[in-house]
Simulated assay, not measured.
Amino acid sequence: MERALTRITYLSTRARQHERLMALAGVPLDRAAVALLRQVADSEPLRPGGLAQRLGVEASHVTRTVQQLQKAGYVTRVPDPHDRRAQRIELTSLGRQAVDRVREAGARGMQLALAGWSPEELRQLATLFHRMVDDFLAHSVEDESGQDADAQVGSA
Rank of each mutant, 00 (worst) to 15 (best):
D42W: 01
S155L: 13
A105F: 09
R47N: 07
L122D: 04
L94Y: 05
V102I: 08
A35L: 05
E90F: 00
D135I: 01
F129K: 09
A98F: 11
E142G: 07
Q70L: 15
A52S: 09
E104K: 02
R7E: 12
P45Q: 05
W117P: 05
E142D: 13
L29A: 13
R103T: 10
E19P: 03
Q68A: 11
E19H: 07
Q87H: 04
A33S: 14
Q147G: 07
Q67D: 15
T63G: 12
D100W: 05
T65E: 13
R38I: 10
V102T: 00
Q152M: 06
R85V: 01
L137T: 11
E104A: 10
D30R: 00
L37M: 12
L55E: 07
S118M: 05
Y74T: 06
V99Y: 04
D80E: 06
A4R: 11
R38M: 11
L46Y: 15
V99M: 03
P48A: 10
S60E: 11
F136C: 01
S118N: 00
G50V: 13
P119W: 05
L128V: 12
P79E: 06
H139I: 00
A105D: 06
L55R: 15
R3T: 12
A33M: 07
Q152A: 05
A59L: 08
A156T: 09
L11P: 02
G109Y: 01
